[in-house]
Amino acid sequence: MVLLRGFLVLVMFFLLGEALRVLADLPVSGGVLGMVMVTFTLMLRGRVSDELAEASRGLISVLVLLIAPGVVGVFFIVEQFYGQWTTVIVALIAGTLLSVLTTLWLMKKVSESAAGDGRHE
């Protein structure tokens, strides 16, 4: 029962997210809008109920189960993207390497200067 109550809250926020997406004509998925609304609601309330926390943990722990069917599709689209795979692989390898290095470098610089500010103040 506890799980179901939490699940109902999640489903309701999902439906609200879908409503916002359609009514405000946003190009963002209903799930993401629901997630943002849940986060803000919790920030306003200042606490999260056990039911909601339980249901969230449960769903998040089976995310792999929910995503796996989509990943299976990759093995069946090899022909559909014939001739594009080199592009895909090169873009992923080089793109990820560059973005990892950029993130690390940026975080290092910014947190060093933030720490520097702290010393001067």
């Binding site: 699940f7 999640l10 489903v11 926020f13 999902f14 997210g17 998925s29 209903g30 799930g31 993401v32 629901g34 997630m35 943002v36 609304m37 849940v38 986060t39 919790l42 920030m43 999260v48 909601l52 926390a53 249901a55 969230s56 943990r57 769903l59 998040i60 089976v62 995310l63 189960l65 929910l66 995503i67 069917p69 989509g70 299976v72 599709g73």
Partner: peptide
């Protein structure tokens, strides 16, 4: 895929659930 859709529809509420750890 058609049958598995019964599972993948849960991705909607599961995405909403990510808001809880974020909070």
């Amino acid at each position: 895929e058609q049958g598995a859709r019964w599972l993948t529809v849960l991705l909607g509420p599961a995405t909403v659930a990510l808001g809880v750890p974020l909070y």
